[in-house]
Design a protein around this nucleic acid. Structure first.
Lengths: 366, 366
DNA sequence: CTGTTAGCGCATTCAA
DNA sequence: TTGAATGCGCTAACAG
């Protein structure tokens, strides 16, 4: 029942009075309900009949303050709506409660879930996440790091695109943890999926199912996770005594459309392939579409398996075998690692490899 | 952080304050790679042989500064790695470059893309996005708003769960724009999809295809978009001269698993339905799975259409008819609206309804 | 055009 | 236990 009555299909100015200044508590006289200036410690101090420093101690109780004064100040503070200015506090204490998070592409569900994991852990620890999308652009990445430095964030969590982020971070004295992939050869904390293990896992699975030759579709081999996944793939082949064939390693871009085209190319070049591994969920979309368009029956003619497990992979026909990376957990642990580094100061470099999980479905089962 | 290891909590007087002005200011050959303290305007001033305020003017050129001095200061600043402290600046200028963004669920692709749109517009305008997930929890929402107030953000973009966010925001004097849905009856700027139009659009489409009766699956009718979509659905029925039947309105939760169960319930209760509308992408997942599990042939026995257009909807069999909400665009425009309100100050209340788009696919075509 | 002075709001010395 | 000073780093007033 549209309890709205009138959903105001077009702009319908409601003439209802906007002045509704919270029924005056007790003696609350004028007390401008809006604008003017936010109350400060001095306002609280005046209203409570104490000094500003006492207010500070009473609220963020570091120093001494008598219980009764403490209670009084707290009461007054909430009454007049005092909220401490985090900027001023940061300035004074040289401590920030915000961390800078740099993500490749928030529109990609994998990264979105990663960010959600980071946010959850950060918020739980009383920190805040400043999120910037860098579109895998080194320039945007550098700009963002400078912004973070300017904000005096207490740390950085980054899906690195350039090795230089690590240098920039240390130049600014910012703790940094890389997530999803390392920053080139830079020695920072990193928490990521064990891509090589994942590559081994899925390749071995395909080999054991007799799906030979098996091809792999990658969007990059340089900065991101492609190299590890490819290494695992090759390792599994070697372990099975199969010679590596670079013709089976198909490169493409990060876009699904390009992945589809590349898949078609691969298919035309190597009609003999019996299995295809895609390095992430976007590539899987393209490959799935291209295979179907080519009239190939997935699961029978060609097995398909992909990194990144997403809901749709269980919904298509056939359901797609996937290597689950647990992105939420990766994000969470990255945040925890950063918090530990912030608190404990420097310790040894953390390298947290999350074990991927192979979920076998019909796309490789039949 | 971790500069000294000791936050000077104990009585360690900083003896290098003015006596020892950092190492080799002029030469700067050392190029301190780490720690100590970030350079300040005074460091730049000393190195450039000018005063602090001149540095300030030269960099954030508000007042006058001669071209040569300006160039010199800029050069020195970059040489010694100076980056202005945004906290101090905010404190002084009473201006912030961060906006608080409150999102229901970053793991939901719809919200993720929404956030991506917000971020894009914000970053383009030189602002930064502090992102908090509230899981549709009013308590978390209130906490987050308090945090934002403490950070002195310059504005708020919110997918509201409680009407009180609007009051809280105005109490703190924070410009706020609601996105994806209004905050109850609060009169704030809001940019959202035209849910009612979407409901009309899809329902009319189904009716014209002769799919009667048509049911609708909703996760809520109160705070979110459900009411509008339901209203559009009813409007289309009325326009076609069909009596509303509340038995065809199936409520469920926001979880896909629950949506599946609810769909099964609906199917058992009303085996006569010929069409089902799901109010969002998550519900579509559940319904799709439940329908298939029930042995129903989608597109033949029952038409299925969903709000939110996602890639997987083109990949399943049959592809699913969808109402595209253009979430990236919604986010972008919400950010633009906020920026306008921040700059222009108060004007009239904006109500930006983005026109949804019906994308007909086989799930309702056959 | 530039330097000096004076705070923004807060937490922390030191005295009392 | 509390209050009076003292800056954190920066910029907007004023001189000069």
């Amino acid at each position: 029942m549209s309890d709205d009555g009138r959903p105001a299909g077009s702009g319908k100015p409601s003439s209802k009075s906007s002045v509704k200044p919270a029924r005056g508590t007790t003696a609350g006289r004028g007390k401008g309900p809006v604008s003017s200036r936010q109350p400060t410690v001095h306002d609280v101090a005046r209203a409570a009949g104490v000094s500003a420093s006492t207010v500070s101690r009473a609220l963020h109780g570091r120093g001494y303050a008598s219980p009764e004064v403490r209670a009084l100040v707290a009461a007054v503070a909430t009454r007049i709506g005092y909220v401490a200015d985090a900027n001023a506090r940061s300035l004074r204490v040289r401590t920030s409660s915000t961390v800078g998070v740099l993500i490749s592409d928030l529109r990609n569900p994998y990264y979105a879930v990663l960010a959600a994991g980071i946010e959850a852990a950060l918020t739980a620890a009383g920190k805040h996440m400043v999120l910037v999308n860098d579109d895998s652009d080194p320039v945007k990445e550098a700009t963002a790091v400078a912004s973070f430095a300017s904000m005096r964030v207490c740390g950085l969590i980054v899906t690195p695109v350039s090795e230089r982020v690590a240098r920039a971070a240390s130049r600014f004295g910012l703790p940094i943890v890389c997530v999803d992939r390392p920053a080139g050869r830079a020695r920072t904390d990193v928490v990521m999926a064990d891509d090589q293990a994942g590559g081994r896992l899925v390749t071995t699975h395909l080999l054991e199912a007799g799906r030979v030759p098996v091809a792999i579709l990658l969007d990059e081999q340089r900065w991101s996770t492609g190299a590890g996944r490819l290494a695992g793939y090759r390792e599994a082949l070697a372990a099975a005594g199969i010679a590596a064939d670079d013709d089976l390693v198909q490169m493409t871009s990060w876009r699904a459309e390009d992945a589809a085209v590349s898949t078609s190319d691969l298919l035309a070049r190597r009609p003999d392939i019996r299995a295809l591994i895609t390095a992430n969920n976007v590539l899987a979309e393209g490959a799935f579409i291209a295979l179907r368009a080519a009239g190939v029956v997935i699961g029978r003619d060609i097995a398909l398996a992909s990194f990144d497990d997403l809901p749709w992979m269980t919904m298509v026909d056939p359901p797609i075998t996937a290597i689950s990376q647990h992105p939420f957990d990766i994000g969470r642990r990255a945040a925890v690692a950063l918090l530990a580094r912030i608190d404990n100061g420097a310790s040894t470099v953390v390298r947290d490899l999350i074990e991927p999980q192979l979920i076998v479905r019909a796309s490789t089962g039949g």
